[in-house]
Amino acid sequence: MILEVRNVTRRYRLPRQALLSAPPVLVAVDNASLTLERGETLGIVGESGSGKSTLARMVMAFERPDEGNIRFDGHDLNALSTGDLRRLRPKFQMIFQDPYGSLDPRRTVGWSIAEPLRVMASTDITRRVDEALAQVGLRQQDAAKYPHEFSGGQRQRIAIARAIVTRPALLVADEAVSALDVSVQAQILNLLMDLQDELGLAMLFISHDLAVVASICDQLMVMQHGRTLESGPAQQVLAAPSHPYTKSLLTAAGA
C-alpha cells in the first residue's frame, strides 16, 4: 500500500458574522478514509466545495489534518520532521488544472522541469530532463523553449514531465485535464495511463467530471460538502450507484 488516509478531518474557521458570536466553522473534509495500492488509480469526484482539493492538499502535506492521519509509503506525513518531509517529497508529486499558472513564464521549460531535481541536488540533470520530455511525448529541443510557445495540452505535458522527473511513486492530479478540449483531454488521459503502466505510478485523480474519472480509475470516491457519499471499485460505483447524488452526476455526464 502506497497511501493510506485514515479518518481525516479538516476544519476552517470562517469570519465572524456578529461581534459576540463564535465564528462559524466549515468542515471542509469530514472523516475521509482511503487506501491506494501501487500502480492503481483512485478517482475522487466532487464539485466546488466538496473538499476534494483540500483532501489532495493534505495528501501532499501542504496542510495538516485536524484529526486522523495520512501515511505515505509507511511514513506518517504529519509526524515527519521538515527535513525528512523534504527528502520524501520527490516520491509524491502533484499536477494542477492550469499549467500556465504553475510554470514560470520567464524560465525555459527545461529549467522548470529540472527544478525538483535541483532541490534534490541530483546529478545527471540534463539526461533526466530529456528522459522526462520523451516520456510525455515532447522533444529534447523543447527544453530550450518558453511556456508561451506551447499549446494548453503541451503545457500540461510539461507539468507532467516536471512531476515525473523525480520518479515519484504517487502522482496527485487535481483537475489536471479540466481546462483542456475534449480531443486534447483524451491524449493527456492516455499519456497518464501510459506513464502508469511504464512507471508503476499510483495516482490520486481528482475531477468534477465523472466520465473522465471513469475512464482512468480503479477505485472511485464520491464527495459532497466534505463528506464521502460512497466509495468502492469504480465499476461497481458506476454500474450501481447507491447515492442519488452519484446518479445525478452520471446523468450530467450523459450516461
Binding site: Q185, M193, D197, S215
Partner: peptide, 21 residues
Amino acid sequence: ARPDPAPQPRRNGKRPRLPTI
C-alpha cells in the same frame, strides 16, 4: 474522444485507451 461514463475495466492488467484525434 469523449470519455464514456460507463465502467472501463482493465484487460490483462491494462486500461483501455481513449480513441484520440
